[in-house]
Simulated scan of single mutants.
Amino acid sequence: MLVPIKFSSSIEKPCNRFKIGDNYFEKELIWTGIGRPYNLNAHRRSNTIFFSYSTVDRFEDVDFQLAYVDIDSKLSQNIAGIRGGCAVAINQKNDDIYLGGMEGIYRYNMITKIADFYSEAGKNIWSLSYNRNLFYISYPDQRLFIEVNGKFAVVKEFKYFEVDHFHVSNNGWIYFANSSGLFTYDNYKMKVSVLNNLLTVRQMAEDAEGNMYICAASGVYVITKDNKTLKQVIDLKNLHGLTFDRENNIIFSDEANIIRLQYRVNGCDESNKSWLTQF
């Protein structure tokens, strides 16, 4: 399990372990391929990661494809039928898996392996998130919508905000990010507070213990319990996505890979410093 403290890290090649603070972690490659894996979201019951990655289209410069990979078997598969698929949200209690693309929202069936149309026909879905309600962000206007009684409406509290990323935590805290930075929103005081105005946020994810993590271009950060500051836990550049498996191991993506970090009691023999390379 990651300890939320800042660190500098190095890999020990023979056993592929590195140190974060006083703890050792082993790097495991889950998926590798062309394109940048975005919007990682782990379905805990099946231990499967749903994600989007960029592809080269014959008619457009860049397109997006939704896919999934089984964490245990490493078997992966593209999800057909969703043009420009780039968004994922999961209701872990009901095992509902929502996917979004250029033509609306779909719901994925784990048994049939088919994504059926769900709602918002013709809407370009930038992002999806779920906590008690399903939310989506539209593109290119970056407006936030909420589903209530089967219908979607603009979230009035965010009517005048552009929203690139949005998350409601299990303890009720509301976080959002845009080109101006990372913010919290107090739903009772209707007040926005700045957490950081320098980060380029790429994903928000909450672990099984309620810790809130931010994946940014400059690394991975955890939000302190007072919701006022950030602490860096992974000092890596060019990260794109973040999620947690059913054992609460952290999983992140870089420009071409999805990687899991698993806690280990011991590290490698550090007497040979030539084994150590920058992570």
Rank of each mutant, 00 (worst) to 15 (best):
Y38P: 13
F166S: 10
D207I: 02
L182N: 06
C215A: 14
Y139S: 15
A87I: 00
L199N: 02
L2P: 01
N238G: 01
L239D: 06
V148W: 00
R36E: 13
Q92T: 11
I97G: 04
K93L: 14
Q92H: 14
D254K: 13
D164M: 11
K237A: 00
S52F: 01
Y53V: 08
N78Q: 08
Q142G: 01
A177P: 02
I82G: 03
F59P: 00
A89P: 09
V233E: 01
R58D: 15
W275N: 15
I30D: 06
V56N: 11
F158Y: 11
I20D: 02
D207H: 06
M204V: 12
F135L: 01
E255Y: 09
Y106T: 05
K159D: 15
G122C: 06
I174G: 03
K13W: 03
T48V: 11
S169R: 08
L199Q: 07
D245Y: 02
L242K: 05
V222N: 10
K273G: 06
T184C: 12
V192R: 11
I20V: 15
Y98T: 07
I174A: 02
L236Q: 14
Y263F: 15
R44P: 12
V88P: 07
K191R: 13
N149W: 04
D22A: 13
F166N: 11
A42M: 10
G35D: 05
I214Q: 03
N196V: 06
